[in-house]
Design a binder for these strands. Structure first.
Lengths: 252, 252
DNA sequence: AAGTGGTCTAGACCACATT
DNA sequence: ATGTGGTCTAGACCACTTG
């Protein structure tokens, strides 16, 4: 039994909070977020029941419920009636739903097949240092791969990862589902991401990789993926041929 | 005082509902959605207080609250502590936040200036009929315009609207903020939209309109905008130069 | 049958805006 | 001072899953 006294605080202030009033359920949320970030519960594993958490933290079940509801709304946790609340996993369903926005013009979203061309460890360039908030001289792991939804490659993709976070990742085969690997092997949970899209002309090198003509229009997607604590942990630059595929964006 | 009995129903079934159990607050939500759609409250105007709605409908205040919370989460209603709950408006803030995803590479999002090139009424082509769910021979209003964030035009845009919904819109000047006009003049509220993005080469005609070179890569955005009741009411095809601007997509 | 999340209620109190 | 939404609680009951 932790002697957590809800009256004032117990957690760390959140970014962008009005500061001057912090509802209890946000403090509870911060506690749970901390535990998720610390890997207290395994990916896919169950959290304690609402009642147990409420008793342990010393608030009512309704307050815990509101905290869990917000975590569920952010896809960090999955609630299943009759079963319990579980740590969200990066299975293919979730990635297709949340992170993979390229879908065939006719047909269902599908998970792409990847072919790794190159894995290297190098000093981060200026763009990588800016995106990943790295110091001068920091090292990154770079992964270059092709991705396809059918027989033809559609995407050429460069990933940059801070070497300190993912030490040794360059020594093992690169799986198709990276986010699952980050979570299981390195305790790094991708919580959300920001993508910037542009239309560009293919360079000769990229055109050759994709089996397309140089100068052809391609969709360039720069993604910065953020971990649970909000720090950038992956930079991913994708060049996509969009003749038979489009990027789907829902405006809600 | 309406004699609404919450026990079973009173509203219309929602799409995609498991069907077999409908919580009270969803029935309340359906009622409120109906009133929004019917224009019972003016855009920007206040709804009755939670207590009043609860008494009128015959449920507890907590149930009304949960319905209003969901409407607020969908940006259909705005809640302001101490003041009340208001019908969401399509002011520039909301449009920038929800519907306009093109932002300068360096700098803040800004609302673009538009120049109308052409307004016509014609028979809907196959693409328009499919997107707007129109019958053969239905008419559409087509608006062709240029949009800019600075001195140079960045976007050439074709809008298609069902003529039956927006009769007479072709006879008046086209304002910069169309969604606000749809709501005020035609009682049509844009609730959300789906965008499909591709990279394409500019046609000679579009290149000339944008003052760019034919064949240059451009971002093509096909938007279908949906009204409160979920029916498509606008097709908008935009071609954007993305040298100094990008499309921002948040993956949450 | 037991355990979990989901709904609904009622009431007290807090934070905020307006009069 | 009044009225609004926001928080917190406690308890009853419902729906769903598992043994």
């Amino acid at each position: 039994m932790t002697m957590f006294k809800p009256e004032i605080d117990g957690g760390v202030a959140e970014a962008g909070e009005p500061l001057g009033f912090r509802p209890l359920y946000r403090q509870v949320k911060a506690i749970l977020l901390r535990r998720l970030s610390d890997g207290v519960w395994a990916p896919g594993g169950p959290l304690p029941s609402e009642g147990q958490l409420a008793a342990e933290i010393g608030v009512s079940q309704g307050t815990v419920r509101k905290a869990l509801d917000e975590l569920a709304a952010e896809n960090l946790v999955v609630r299943r009636q009759g079963r319990g609340t579980f740590v969200a996993e990066h299975d293919e369903r979730r990635i297709l739903f949340q992170f993979f926005k390229l879908v065939p013009d006719d047909g269902e979203p599908r998970f792409p097949e990847s072919t790794v061309l190159e894995v290297t460890v190098q000093h981060a360039d200026a763009e990588e240092r800016a995106a990943l908030e790295l110091a001068d001289g920091a090292q990154v792991v770079r992964i270059l791969r092709l991705r396809a939804l059918g027989p033809r490659p559609l995407i050429v993709e460069t990933l940059s990862l801070p070497h300190t976070l993912f030490a040794g990742i360059e020594t093992a085969p690169v799986p198709n589902n990276l986010y699952s690997l980050y979570a299981r092997r390195y305790g790094v949970t991708i919580a959300h991401a920001r993508e910037r899209l542009k239309a560009v002309a293919l360079s000769p090198a990229d055109a050759e990789r994709l089996g397309a003509a140089a100068g052809q229009p391609a969709l360039r997607i720069d993604r910065i993926a953020l971990s649970l604590d909000g720090s950038p942990v992956e930079l991913r630059i994708s060049l996509c041929l969009t003749e038979e595929v489009h990027y789907l964006s829902e405006l809600r």
